[in-house]
Design a protein around this nucleic acid. Structure first.
Length: 599
RNA sequence: GCACCCGUAGCUCAGUGGAUAGAGCGUCUGCCUCCGGAGCAGAAGGCCACUGGUUCGAGUCCAGUCGGGUGCACCA
């Protein structure tokens, strides 16, 4: 079943036991396993550890149910026997072992843990949380954003762009050699439409003040006219065929459309901090299309129908509807181009993962493409190809935004509005003297905040659900929002401007519940990044970052830093603040969001 | 009709077989003589759509039902 293959490829094997980049979090797990195994009551292999819920006063837990059953004892007794038999040697990060119900609970040694976590955040710096062992330099392709030439990016492109961008960063943090590719929609019948309109009406959109806007309007006009006059679509198809056949005017005009659109896209990408390693639009694969169709025919994956169309039938058992690789008029389709793209990447990179960040409405399309590639004999790349499908952005009434109907909200509009709101808020803070922001910074910081709000509003939740577009929600600045995280970072930096932590602080003094809560959250960044990479889920990192900010703000309100009770504690807390600032910056960075010094 | 996604607090969402299901928004109550109030603390709010099954244990896995969405060859 293609579905089974598709889904199984979604989880990347995670490294066994403790990777070489062993963080305090990893050492805790290793220690717990050793302590349990040393009792002689359970084997190392039978130990699986879980993170207890926050309400449980423990840092790591071993649910004994399965082991107790194997030993023929009831879980409560067995966990007690394990806890009684457990010996915690000196110098461990684990401080105590207790039994509670069917669980053996491990608590950290607060002082040792504090010193270890602060030390590794300081040592890691911007790379804290990374684990290059996981990816070990293996190639991974991430295709994302992929807007269409002669269109404006709208809110739909936002999702692909920010999810893809974050995935690239997360996978790179895990040591993968990532190739980010912008698969531009620069080919297809839509260009026939534009060429037909430009030719018919002798248009010169490149001379207009907003050329892309003109093209969008031309396209919309043509489509509505085509409803009354079906011959218009025929002329569009004919023009696309001419483009494919290399007609000089068609080619030249097409290239102009690409160039003037890319100027606009680049502005948006710069604002979002997004860059690509390759921008292989669909046209790039054009020379590979005929050979792919031929290969599919040779391998009996596809056949020619009487009219001349090339068809792939998947058969009853696969339950996939059949699709075309070549139209009756000889032109190719989306499936043809994506099959060629997939094979190109296999030959060029042989990646361990070939990831497509594309809307959920194209799920069937990718299943078909991957299955075609598999049947052509390229099982490896088919198995390694993954469609990260995200839900559509819809309006308040649940309707999808449509370029053709003119209801689309353009991405630039959203970013501008977000930046405007951020600036207004900051100016209010300035008027009330609640910020240390300087007038010179207002522009750059309001840009960082506005863009951050938009990115975070998308990434804080998983991709599968759709998003109801709501200005107030996307641009919110209280609670679980980008602004909250950025504010917390600015707050840390504000303290650090007043006093820098001296080296050699006695970080083992950080044993209060609030301090320990911050340290525990800090220690879990490596875990969060690995999980995000294994599940292709930036929201895991977003969630970690939010919880770090929350833990820090709680600490901030309970524990004075600059006016701590003793100078030793003051130094230790300064070190903690510096570590939190680093952690927030790293987490935000993985999401593609900037961390401001002041706001 | 077939396939896929979603269904958890009034709303928006976390929760990858483990303990008393968690956040944010909104509502109500407190906290600026103190490192930035875009903050903190507290309260109220749940038949995790429904019915069965697997399991020591199910919001989580399986089957079915009901709701919402998406897709199903000459667009992309």
């Amino acid at each position: 079943m293609p579905d089974a293959n598709f889904d199984s490829s979604r989880s990347v094997p995670t490294p066994q036991a403790v990777p070489l980049a062993a963080y305090a979090h990893d050492r805790l797990r290793a220690e717990a396993t050793e302590i349990l195994a040393a009792t002689g009551l359970v084997t190392r292999e039978s130990v699986t550890l879980a993170l207890p819920k926050p309400s449980i006063p423990a840092d790591l837990a071993f649910p004994v149910f399965a082991a107790a059953k194997a030993a023929g004892q009831n879980p409560g007794d067995f966990s007690q026997r394990l806890a009684d038999a457990a010996v915690v040697p000196e110098g461990m990060l684990i401080g105590a072992v207790t039994a509670q119900g069917g669980f053996v609970n491990f608590a950290v040694h607060p002082a040792a843990f504090a010193a270890a976590v602060i030390e590794e955040v300081e040592a890691g710096g911007a790379a804290y949380g990374n684990d290059k062992i996981v990816g070990a330099g293996q190639k991974t392709v991430v295709e994302f954003s992929s807007p269409n030439i002669a269109r404006k990016m709208h809110v739909g492109h936002l999702r692909s762009t920010v999810i893809g961008h974050s995935l690239v960063k997360i996978l790179a943090a895990l040591g993968y050699d990532v190739i980010s590719d912008n698969h531009l929609g620069d080919w297809g019948t839509q260009f026939g439409t534009l060429l037909a309109a430009i030719d018919n009406d002798h248009l010169t959109p490149w001379d207009d003040p907003d050329p892309v806007q003109s093209l969008v309007e031309v396209y919309a006009r043509f489509n509505s006219a085509a409803k009354d006059d079906p011959t218009l679509m025929d002329s569009a198809r004919a023009w696309f065929k001419r483009l494919e056949d290399g007609d000089p005017w068609a080619r030249q005009t097409w290239q102009r459309l690409i160039d003037l659109t890319l100027v606009e896209f680049d502005k948006t990408y710069r604002r979002l901090g997004v860059a690509f390693d390759t921008t292989h639009g669909e046209s790039y694969f054009e020379p590979m299309l005929a050979p792919v169709v031929q290969e599919a025919l040779d391998k009996k994956v596809a056949h020619i129908e009487p009219g001349g169309a090339v068809v792939v039938e998947f058969g009853e058992e696969s339950r996939l509807p059949s699709c075309l690789l070549r139209k009756t008029d000889g032109a190719t389709l989306y499936q043809t181009r994506d099959a060629a793209t997939c094979l190109y990447r296999w030959r060029e990179y042989a990646p361990v993962r070939n990831i497509y960040v594309v809307g959920a409405e194209q799920k069937l399309h990718f299943q078909q493409v991957f299955e075609i590639v598999r049947r052509m004999g390229y099982k490896e790349i088919a198995d390694r190809s993954i469609h990260i499908a995200f839900g559509a952005i819809v309006d308040a009434g649940g309707q999808r935004f449509s370029m053709r109907k003119g209801t689309a909200i353009f991405l630039e509009e959203v970013l501008d509005e977000a930046v405007t709101r951020a600036r207004a808020l900051m100016q209010a803070s300035m008027a009330e003297g609640r910020t240390e922001i300087t007038p010179e910074e207002v522009d750059s910081v309001s840009e960082m905040l506005g863009i951050g709000a938009v990115i975070y509003a998308d990434l804080y939740q998983g991709p599968e659900r759709g998003i109801k577009f709501d200005w107030d929600k996307i641009l919110a600045n209280e609670g679980n929002t980008g602004a909250y995280l950025q504010y917390t970072h600015a707050r840390c930096r504000s303290i650090l401007r007043k006093a820098l932590p001296a080296p050699g602080a006695e970080t083992l003094l950080l044993v209060s519940p609030e301090e320990q809560a911050v340290l525990k959250q800090l220690s879990r960044l490596p875990h969060a990044i690995r999980e995000a990479g294994a599940n292709f889920a930036p929201s895991t990192v977003a969630d970690w970052t939010y919880n770090l900010a929350k833990a820090f703000n709680d600490f901030y309100h309970s524990c004075p830093v600059l006016k701590a009770e003793t100078s030793g504690l003051r130094e230790a807390r300064l070190a903690l603040v510096a570590a939190v600032a680093q952690g927030l910056k790293n987490g935000l960075g993985l999401l593609g969001i900037g961390a401001p010094e002041r706001m």
